[in-house]
Design a protein around this nucleic acid. Sequence first.
DNA 1: TAGATTGTTAATCGATTAACAATC
DNA 2: TAGATTGTTAATCGATTAACAATC
Lengths: 224, 224
Amino acid sequence: MSKPAVSGISDQTLSRLPYYLRIIDEAKQAGKEYISAPAIAAELKLHEIQVRKDLAAVFSENGIPKKGFSVNKLLADIKDVMGTDKIKKAVLVGAGSLGSALLSYEGFSEYGMQIVAGFDRSKKKIGKTIGGKPISSIEFLSEFCRQHQIKIGIITVPADSAQEICDLLVSAGVLGILNFAPLRLTAPEQISIQNVNMAASLLMLSQHLRQQLEAQELETEKKL
Amino acid sequence: MSKPAVSGISDQTLSRLPYYLRIIDEAKQAGKEYISAPAIAAELKLHEIQVRKDLAAVFSENGIPKKGFSVNKLLADIKDVMGTDKIKKAVLVGAGSLGSALLSYEGFSEYGMQIVAGFDRSKKKIGKTIGGKPISSIEFLSEFCRQHQIKIGIITVPADSAQEICDLLVSAGVLGILNFAPLRLTAPEQISIQNVNMAASLLMLSQHLRQQLEAQELETEKKL
DNA sequence: TAGATTGTTAATCGATTAACAATC
DNA sequence: TAGATTGTTAATCGATTAACAATC
């Protein structure tokens, strides 16, 4: 709060915050007042220096040599940066299997987001309720976003129509887009687009897996 | 196929392959025989050189100056690297809201993975079927993995029990883990762990959003 | 005081981008 | 041939890691 910081936090650091949050929260539960970078690093198998740098980026005060960082203050600052306190409303477009999945997923609120409505083109979906959220026709998307001051849109439509939906969201005043479609969307510079691609995670996994299996086969061959 | 390459592909490059695949597939649909790096780059808003390097990493032949890369051969090579052809079986542990979501999600097969069974501790879940997959007690996890030669495990349990499940999976012969719990798991070196953290994506999104909103407010103030 | 831990400044590393000669 | 596009070698950039003085 006291630091102008906010903008100076790298995406890499941001992506580690949820991990820190958890560890520090545990420390609080355990009644600890201070926690040190080496302790956190050990827990997360990260480098001590990285943790120190990350904490420095979000922490409004300084750590105390020999003791570490105030658990309570760290928690407050991290939560502040994460913006967990003020829940932001979002709409989701594309109630297919992934879309339905996300509509039913309750974990978003933990990170400051709440999906308030779903939209789809299919008449089969329109009118239904998924995960407690009503599904409406895409016709009403713009109107809804404007009326409810929606700033976040989640795109779970097929790649073909993703750009079109993106344009629609942007024209309705949405500023941030969480894109699950396997393409890179085009939008004005001030719109922030986060591409979530599980395909990539799967690829990396199966790549490593393949290497691992090959290594195992080599081992077996040697033994024979 | 002809290159030993496989291991030399960076995670960064891997994560862009799904995008390339899509563009190149479109080119094929359009009847094109060749596609150039600049063309792909323009489509994806990437740098031409990056595309060239990425393609070089996966392509078993060389591109042809002035023409570009053979669409068919590129497709074959990318698919080969992605291992999309041979579907790998996976189990999912933790049939909560995210777990159920993933069990119902059909998109994994597109990237070479198929969830064949779900496991949970809750008696409410056990015996049910989600997304066509049976949910069994965690008791039977090890046995199932061994019997079906499962090499991939998906963890969607709460952070508290994630490590325990991870250990269980590893002892049952699983080699790759897709972890959705917000903590970093410990496992023997040869086990590949991919952490999917949507929290991070959400954080980056809301961070940019906040900056954007602040910028807008400044604009408004100026006008007043 | 001594030692652990901090913040800061410098070195390393990997990925991206630039420059350029080779070639169809 | 001329020009577009390739592959390769070098420069830049950002993030991670190391080194070290400051301090509770």
